[in-house]
Amino acid sequence: MPLIEVKELSFSYEKSSNLKKQDLSNINLNINRGEIIGLIGPSGSGKTTLVQQIGGLLRPDHGTVLFDGLDIFKDSKVFRKLRYKIGLVFQNPEEQLFSETIFKDIAFGPHNMGLSRDNIAKRVLEAINFVGLDKSILSKSPFEISGGEKRRVAIAGVIAMRPEILILDEPTVGLDFEGSRSILSYIKQYNRENKNTLILISHNMDDIINLTDKVAVMSAGEIKAFGKTGKIFADPVLLHSLKIDVPEITKIMKKLKEKGFNLKDSVFTEREALQEILRLKYTI
């Protein structure tokens, strides 16, 4: 059984009839345990809205969200049980920090879960480790540290709840190259060690290609395509029609193909590109 099933979900922020713009229309999506799913699409296509539905923060107008077969909106008891199994890291999560110390902020989630003090402390240490920060930071105020560190603290706050599925909405936006790279490597490692499920929203196609198994492409509130990452990015017509940016390497290979060179154009990394070009050069 898939871990998450979204069935015929529709939603609109504007509830009254005629002015309604459908923010989400008839969404169907299945996510299996352990998968890393990328969610891409232009701004305003509904990605953040969709993950908020999956995370139980917004109630759909039609349709359901099932977690392990259970309807998350069915009743509040079920909901409270499932609340902590779905971890959602919003965009610019560093803006939500508020406690006196970093320890307390990360502990907020586990505290709400009703865990014992020892357990909470254990989880906070575990979480801070995962994001590559030293435990000496725990006694500091969240407002004393740098922007990149704040973001890691915010992510730690969600990881500390040990969710079965972790959803990250644009985790690298606004960071410099170093910052982006380290956040992604922590995410990758976290996923490898915990074998949990991941949904990643990102504008950076390189990150999507490097990290995800499958990708869902959204546009105007609908899922236009969903499948293995390699397959989706190999469809130039689809990508162009949905205004999806492809990696530069892929653009280069496509242009070469257009110039008449018999090259495979579903290439996304430099190494593959090199192999393809050398193959063509030396097999004439």
């Binding site: 923060l57 609340r83 959602l88 709400n112 969600v158």
Partner: peptide, 11 residues
């Protein structure tokens, strides 16, 4: 936005 983020952590 902030409210949603805190709700996601069980607030």
């Amino acid at each position: 936005k902030i409210s949603a983020a805190q709700k996601a952590r069980g607030a």
